[in-house]
């Protein structure tokens, strides 16, 4: 039917496979994010530290550069678990900020405008909705966390050689696992909290507040109760514990690694529960 023919006509063309529909939501989600110049600039800005790290790796293996500045090669810190532990802290923190900015942008308009009945009156499930939205966050967070991390590992391996790579392959696994787990938890927190607060700025503030408040309350509990259990509600402590374990860099954290994994698991389940409670085609007002 051409646009100049103002009569209604059925659609009888082919349909896309059901499994691919969540990608539609992801595509429109990316469009929504990249429509905001601030977010685009922030994402680009998040790649500054990996670039600095890449330059460091290159220059630390460049004898001409070291000779020029008279830096003894023995004094250059090695690219090892400690290096990637600090890389994870910096990029993990940026990923957290990006989640607070992007999560509400993805989810809030749907809830604030009451669009859920329109999504779910179509052959489109709640799981596909969450999949479509979370995939945007996961891709963006991956771009600034484990993907540049693996690239840094590859640069180091290409410069130092095969032996270093085979001896430190566990580092690549630690980068992927440590940061992937972190961004999955962040994405779930970002979506779950954004779904419950209709005001976009409020939702972003809540996502930021959860971690700051957790850290604050955790410290307060530890001080008042004279225990270490307060660290369990401090997600930054939890992440540092896991990264310190994965990168084999002892930071002297008092939390056990198993407790940290359990906290991340419980947090993820709690977020999924919040999403399941919130993502519905309509609300029953009691």
């Amino acid at each position: 039917m051409a646009v100049h023919k103002h009569t209604y006509k059925d659609y009888t063309g082919p349909r896309t496979p059901a499994w691919s529909r969540f990608l539609v939501l992801a595509r429109f989600g990316f469009a929504r994010v990249f429509h905001l110049k601030f977010l685009l600039l922030f994402i680009i800005g998040c790649l500054f530290y990996p670039l600095v790290c890449a330059a460091y790796i290159y220059l630390s293996h460049n004898p001409a550069f070291l000779a020029l500045f008279r830096i003894p090669a023995s004094q250059i810190p090695h690219v090892d678990g400690r290096f990637f532990y600090f890389y994870s802290i910096v990029q993990g923190a940026l990923a957290y900020l990006l989640t607070a900015f992007v999560g509400p942008v993805l989810v809030n308009p749907d809830f604030a405008n009451g669009a859920m009945p329109l999504y779910f009156s179509r052959p489109f499930s709640r799981a596909e909705y969450v999949g479509g939205r979370i995939s945007v966050l996961l891709v963006l967070l991956s771009l600034i966390t484990w993907i540049p991390g693996v690239v840094l590992f590859a640069i180091q391996a290409s410069i130092v050689g095969w032996d270093w790579m085979t001896a430190n392959l566990w580092l690549a696994g630690a980068i992927v696992l440590g940061l992937l787990v972190w961004i999955i938890v962040l994405s779930l927190i970002g979506l779950a909290l954004s779904a419950w607060v209709k005001w976009k700025i409020g939702a972003g503030a809540l996502v930021l507040g959860v971690i700051f408040a957790g850290a604050g309350f955790g410290t307060a509990i530890n001080s008042l109760m004279r225990t270490n259990y307060g660290a369990l509600i401090d997600l930054t402590q939890v992440a540092h514990t896991i990264w310190s374990y994965l990168f084999r860099y002892n930071t002297g954290t008092e939390m056990s690694v198993s407790s940290a994994w359990i906290v991340l698991g419980v947090t993820s389940l709690l977020c999924l529960w919040l999403l399941a409670r919130r993502i519905k085609p309509f609300e029953v007002i009691k």
Partner: peptide, 24 residues
């Protein structure tokens, strides 16, 4: 009830809904 996403253009919104219904 009102259920349109305010910051999307009509053509973009209707297109998205069409794609979610299975149109290429």
């Amino acid at each position: 009830n009102d259920s349109l996403i305010a910051d999307m253009t009509a053509v973009s919104f209707v297109r998205m809904m069409g794609e979610l219904s299975g149109l290429a």
